[in-house]
């Protein structure tokens, strides 16, 4: 029976002797009584049906009880919902959303143009400067004499990626950073928070799968036979 219910949505028709129309009418009467919006006509019809079908009273009682049970859980959900406000910092952001959309629409082209300009400039430099040629030969262009202590964050990051790649620790950087939030600043600029994703690899002696014990506690279980491929997190 349960299976039958799940097979179809709108095509579902309860199987009863009186036919689908009569059943729908019966269900709607029960539903209106449960909702407390049954009028005099509805009650007359209800009594007429109840004269032939005593089961309707039992169905009404069950429907009423189930409705109250669901109201109880929805009341709890509503209380949870009432505690969730809009994130404060982002409301102001919404005010600037349209402006930001304009900027981002044209900002992409501006960024592309800037990258092209930098590339063309560096091409010109590399043809005349032998140091620059050596830099471009590497995977990540960093100053050959740049020490980590004096490096800018970008240079240090590039250095980490290059060193990690050579050591086999870093596989690569995911090209598209994840945008977390944009905040308009007082001076008309935008602060952009984003996540850079670096893919790393590690060789481990053994791996564990997380599972739950009979009490629902999380426990690690060693994997005996190495799976062909397991994706984590």
């Amino acid at each position: 029976m349960n299976k039958e219910i799940h097979q179809s949505d709108d095509s579902y028709r309860p199987q009863r002797e009186g036919g689908a129309m009569k059943d729908d009418q019966r269900d709607e009467l029960i539903s209106r009584v449960v909702d407390g919006c049954a009028g005099a006509d509805d009650w007359n019809q209800f009594r007429q049906i109840a004269a032939e079908d005593q089961q309707i009273w039992s169905d009404l009682a069950v429907a009423q009880s189930q409705y109250e049970g669901l109201c109880e859980t929805m009341h709890s959900a509503a209380a949870t919902a009432d505690s969730v406000e809009l994130p404060g910092g982002m409301i102001r952001h919404a005010q600037h959303q349209q402006r930001f959309e304009f900027v981002s629409r044209w900002g992409g082209w501006a960024a592309a143009a800037a990258i092209l300009l930098v590339w063309v400039t560096s091409m010109g430099n590399s043809q005349t400067n032998p140091d620059a040629q050596r830099q471009n030969a590497g995977m990540v262009p960093i100053g050959s004499n740049t020490m980590l202590q004096s490096a800018t964050p970008e240079q240090a990051m590039d250095q980490y990626i290059a060193a990690g790649y050579q050591a086999g620790r870093v596989v690569g950087e995911i090209p598209n950073p994840i945008l977390v939030e944009t905040r308009p600043m007082d001076d008309g600029t935008f602060e952009v928070l984003y996540i850079r994703q670096i893919l790393e690899r590690k060789i481990l002696d053994e791996v564990y799968r997380e599972t739950n014990d009979e009490f629902g506690n999380s426990i690690p279980v060693p994997i005996q036979d190495a799976p062909k491929q397991v994706r984590s997190f």
């Binding site: 029976m1 349960n2 309860p14 729908d24 709607e28 029960i30 539903s31 449960v34 429907a63």
Partner: peptide
């Protein structure tokens, strides 16, 4: 209204099952 009425009937049946 029809969906709520039918849904409640299905609910009675599912709980019974």
């Amino acid at each position: 209204e029809t969906r709520i009425a039918r849904g409640r009937r299905m609910l009675r049946e599912i709980v019974q099952i």
